[in-house]
């Protein structure tokens, strides 16, 4: 059981708090690129304090290398802190918009599947619908697998965002 939706030992979810200065994203991306790590997803948003941003980065690669990357990211002047939340008690969600090709005949079944995953229809036309799902990455994967029987025309996923549970700061 992997509570945070970790796929395997090589996928890590990092949370990075940064000062809102130009170039900070490029500097962080450089550290990953130089060590040959692929960034699977990246979300940047404002944090509670206006001068700072919060990044959530999912990356794949060997754990030893990642530890080094975390230390090097922490070393960047504009990074306040960078933590690996892999294996910790956290809430991890992502949002997906899925455009499915559905005629009137298939519509009901598609909606039924969506409802099971707590996804909602946010656009509906004669030939298509857009479903919006907010869930763990695994649940979204499962939803997509079931929707494959219809034609998935377009797919957008935000990438994961995380927050530590309870009093624990992220």
């Amino acid at each position: 059981m992997q509570p945070n939706g970790k796929k395997d030992g090589n996928t890590h979810t990092l949370s990075v708090t940064v000062a809102n200065k130009p170039g900070v994203l490029a500097r962080i991306a450089h550290v990953f690129a130089r060590r040959g790590f692929n960034i699977d997803s990246l979300v940047v948003s404002a944090s509670v304090e206006g001068d700072f941003s919060r990044m959530t980065i999912t990356a794949t690669g060997d754990p030893g290398g990642l530890e080094q990357i975390i230390r090097q990211v922490n070393k960047l002047v504009d990074v306040i802190h960078c933590t690996d939340h892999t294996g910790e008690d956290i809430v991890l969600k992502e949002l997906a918009l899925i455009k499915v090709h559905t005629g009137p005949a298939a519509r009901a079944e598609a909606l039924q599947i969506a409802a099971h995953f707590g996804a909602a229809s946010v656009d509906l036309t004669e030939t298509s619908m857009i479903l919006m799902a907010t869930a763990d990455s695994e649940q979204i994967d499962a939803l997509l697998a079931l929707l494959k029987k219809f034609k998935i025309v377009e797919l957008v996923r935000t990438g994961k965002v995380v927050m530590a549970r309870g009093e624990q700061p992220t």
Binding site: V18, A19, D51, F52, L76, V77, D78, V79, I80
Partner: peptide
Amino acid sequence: AEMDLPGY
């Protein structure tokens, strides 16, 4: 001027 280096 004051420095503004919260991450350093």
